[in-house]
């Protein structure tokens, strides 16, 4: 069963299954780096999946769908930002509210789109490279959005660790008071990061309906938002690690189907559990090792009020 063909097709589909996770993880990483914990990823993702699908059906342009999925994600993220940054509300609760909101709205408006056919985003075979043995199939037969995700990860890494903007974002997430004291506008940074994060999560959703599953059903994110939250922790809030993490978790998802198909006697529920178990193990390691590079942003989830002690 473990012939090279099987492995390379598994790796190729790992990338496809991992791409929506990657978008969502990158978005949430950006948000959390600024100190805002947005637990609403699942709700934003499903909203992105529906919006992308519906816009593609209505306009016949899947790329317009992707764009509007991003905007829809941004709109939900704005609700979260408004409650968290402006009203200093409890972030986990607002996040859970976004989940319910996203699932509810898409369930309601999505009913008439079930069974519809949209224009999808199709894979492109990169000339010459895609014909390389094995490697060609694994790396060069994907759709443009999958490549853009990797480029985005690199851009985000550069932004966070090589520019002044990144310095300001990280400082805002670590110690907003310190950032404020040198003239960084904490609220502005948090708004921008939450909105941009929501945009990326929304696109992750659109990828799901327009490029991966190529259909719309209610609740089709099926927990991928939650997995992305775990992935943020898994990757230690680093975009570069998120790429590997997303493909790994995507691969586990695919593997659970493939093993089922070839009749391996492991119940697929166990396979579905693996990402969460891996995340818990990673969390354990990060707690045990207490390495600076692994920890969460120090001010994550804590509202910032100027001049308030402790």
């Amino acid at each position: 069963m473990l012939d090279v063909g099987f492995v390379s097709s598994l790796l190729a589909s790992s990338i496809r299954a991992g791409t929506p996770l990657l978008y969502a993880t990158l978005g949430e990483t950006l948000t959390e780096r600024s100190g805002i914990l947005n637990l609403g990823v699942e709700g934003i993702m499903i909203t992105g999946a529906f919006t992308g699908f519906a816009v593609s059906v209505l306009t016949g342009n899947p790329w317009l769908g992707v764009l509007f999925a991003g905007f829809a994600g941004m709109a939900l993220a704005f609700i979260h930002a408004f409650f968290s940054v402006t009203l200093k509300a409890n972030q986990p609760i607002t996040g859970l509210m976004i989940v319910l909101l996203g699932l509810g709205i898409t369930g309601f408006f999505g009913r008439s789109y079930i069974g519809e056919v949209a224009v999808y985003i199709n894979p492109i075979h990169i000339p010459h490279l895609s014909t390389l043995p094995y490697l060609g199939e694994i790396l060069f037969t994907h759709d443009p959005l999958a490549y853009i995700a990797v480029i985005l990860a690199a851009v985000l890494w550069f932004l966070l660790f090589k520019t002044r903007y990144g310095l300001e974002i990280i400082a805002t997430g670590e110690n907003p008071e310190a950032a404020d004291s040198v003239g960084v506008d904490v609220d502005r940074v948090r708004y921008i990061c939450t909105l941009m994060g929501g945009f990326l999560v929304g696109i992750g959703g659109a990828y799901l309906s327009l490029a991966y599953a190529k259909l719309w059903t209610e609740g089709m994110t099926a927990g991928r938002g939650w997995i992305s939250l775990a992935l943020v922790i898994f990757s230690g809030w680093m975009p570069q690690r998120a790429v590997l993490g997303a493909y790994l978790f995507g691969g586990l998802d695919v593997l659970s189907f493939k093993l089922q198909a070839i009749g391996v006697g492991i119940p697929y529920h166990f396979m579905k559990m693996v990402p969460y178990v891996v995340t818990i193990v990673v969390l354990l390691f990060s707690v045990i090792r207490k390495r600076a590079a692994f920890g969460a942003p120090a001010a994550l989830g804590i509202p910032y009020v100027r001049g308030k002690k402790e």
Partner: peptide, 25 residues
């Protein structure tokens, strides 16, 4: 102190400051 413990001294010093190659550091 208004410092970010996880950043190095240089990053803390220039936080909020624009170096000549802004936005690069």
């Amino acid at each position: 102190f208004m410092l970010v413990p996880r950043m190095n001294v240089l990053q803390n010093v220039i936080l909020g400051y624009r170096t000549p190659s802004d936005p690069l550091i």
